[in-house]
Amino acid sequence: MIQVSHLLAEKGGQIHTIGPDEPVLAAIQLMADRVIGAVLVMTGDQLVGIVSERDYARKIILNGRSSSGTPVRDIMTASVITVNSTDTIDTCMRLCTDSRVRHLPVVDDRKVVGVVSIGDLVKAVISEQGEQIEQLQRYIAG
């Protein structure tokens, strides 16, 4: 079973963050620049929330609020669902599905070490299944 640590080793542990008092526009610009769907909201080394494109659409656009005049803290999800690097990909997939989230910060010993997205998880599952199919084909042909 693939663990989150293996996934982070392949993709890297890049973490994109923003402060809770920054304007939402800055968060959206960061997401656009980095081609990502969410950024972690941090105060120093402490994870205080996560803000996603979905938060922006639902809490800014639909409510007619200003992106430049609204701080990230007003739209972020404060109760962040996290995983650690020893969790399995299956555990993460279940969390994403059950909680309807697309991004899981990876926290080890209270320190954020990375983020996995639903896309990362699906890619890992497809790769693992491909390897299993190949092994079975070799076994059958062997």
Rank of each mutant, 00 (worst) to 15 (best):
I2V: 12
Q3K: 11
Q3L: 03
V4A: 06
S5G: 13
A9Q: 14
E10I: 07
G12C: 03
G13K: 08
I15V: 15
H16I: 06
I18F: 08
I18K: 06
D21K: 12
D21Q: 13
P23Q: 15
V24Y: 04
L25R: 15
A27P: 04
Q29P: 01
M31L: 04
D33S: 11
V35K: 14
A38R: 02
A38W: 00
V39R: 00
L40N: 03
V41K: 02
V41T: 10
T43D: 14
T43P: 01
L47K: 12
S52N: 08
A57N: 05
N63T: 15
S66Y: 09
G69K: 14
G69F: 06
G69R: 11
M76V: 09
A78F: 02
V80R: 06
D87H: 13
D87M: 10
I89K: 05
C92W: 03
R94Q: 11
L95T: 00
C96D: 09
C96R: 08
R102P: 03
H103N: 11
V106A: 02
V106E: 07
V107Q: 06
D108N: 15
K111M: 12
V112D: 00
V113K: 01
G119R: 11
D120M: 11
L121E: 10
L121C: 02
Q129P: 07
G130C: 02
Q132M: 13
Q132H: 10
Q132D: 10
Q135W: 04
I140M: 13
A141I: 07
G142K: 09
